[in-house]
Nucleic acid binder design. Structure first.
Lengths: 215, 215
DNA sequence: ACCTGAACACCGTTCAAGT
DNA sequence: ACCTGAACACCGTTCAAGT
């Protein structure tokens, strides 16, 4: 079982979600396709378990973070840890935190985030919404990166900056009257860093939360 | 071409993303599989065009919204319109706003949102981040709903409240020492409304933005 | 210019049969 | 208890052939 999940994660890490096929997995394990069905009920179950498997490591990282005096600072650190985990494994993308309903590492991560909000002067409803919002910001920003990059970026023949630059070029060619905003921010888009973008969005949510909590 | 996209959207609306197969689409159009390839380069292209097709309607709705005196109020109204569009068509889910790079309705919606930030006292970088954050909140909250609901909810034999109630029950059974946050918010989770949750998260981002803009 | 549909190389899943 | 692998019912994509 452990070997099945390790092999599944390895396939996902190497070539993304589309690389995880039962045949490829069986080949890597040196067995037949059918035998995998003894361990998992199907492909969805396999993916769920693979996700839970890697979230175990993320949970350990989050638990190991020393808590500061400021719950909101702690929430920031945790959210960044979650974001970085998705950057490392883009295939987590949208599936991340999808299974809060069943007991597992998703739920434990949810609890870790939520525990910080217990230190804030909020109603339970406000806490529920605050944690959902933070998870939403992480997932919303990371989902963009979950999509497999175009082949010319993946194989390194064109780097990311050049790739962004091409689109920036196209944006600059747009009519200035019709697209005033796009023109206003095109220089920021050109060569932008996804993590910085995420951090800025997170900061807005945390600022709103701090205001709400009067902290 | 128009007929192809209309039929594709109909399939997606009726039974979700998995229902859009080239064979099903060809059958509905009364043609052969191969003929679809004359209009689109492949399945990904088909999905992209179907998304752009429905975003046309969303764009019209957004453009029709009268602007108020407060740019942040206008951003809220627009974000809600986007969210509602995804609620109506869960298959838009994560793909929503995925193609800002190519000129199309995604880019125009992006421009519409961004135009409101031009009325705020912000730097271009802050505007770029603000719009990304709002799109992130919409996508992050809507992505949760994009996953197909379990069959017993879909066929109506179990309603959503009962479904949530079951998980709430399981949560209440968890150890109180180990899961203090989950216990704190379980009554809020039970029977919660996804839209309310989204609105609360959006409000935090908008509050942070208002603070940043000094408005 | 537009359509056809058989053919190809894949999938996930099942299941009788093995050890 | 665990594994095998052929078989089934699907996919997306291609392409020689038609009109």
């Amino acid at each position: 079982m452990e070997a099945v999940l390790t092999a599944a994660v390895a396939l996902l890490d190497e070539a993304g979600e589309s690389a995880l096929t039962l045949r490829a997995l069986a080949a890597r394990l040196g067995t037949g396709v059918g035998s995998i069905y003894w361990y998992v009920s199907g492909k969805d179950d396999l993916l769920d378990r693979a996700i839970d498997h890697v979230l175990g490591g993320v949970l350990t990282a989050v638990e190991g973070q020393t808590t500061s005096g400021d719950p909101i600072d702690d929430l920031r650190v945790m959210a960044v840890t979650l974001f970085d985990a998705i950057v490392d494994r883009p295939w987590l993308g949208a599936h991340f935190m999808q299974d809060i309903d069943v007991p597992g590492n998703s739920l434990r991560l949810y609890e870790e985030l939520g525990r910080q909000t217990l230190r804030l002067d909020l109603t339970p409803r406000q806490r529920f919404h605050a944690v959902s919002a933070i998870v939403g910001v992480v997932v919303g920003n990371a989902a963009d990166m979950g999509q497999e990059p175009p082949p010319e970026v993946l194989d390194g023949s064109v780097d990311r900056d050049e790739f962004l630059g091409r689109y920036a070029e196209a944006w600059r060619a747009l009519d200035a009257e019709e697209f005033p905003f796009v023109h206003d921010i095109v220089d920021e888009f050109d060569g932008h860093d996804d993590k910085e973008q995420f951090l800025a969005g997170l900061e807005l949510t945390l600022a709103g939360l701090r205001l709400q909590a009067g902290a």
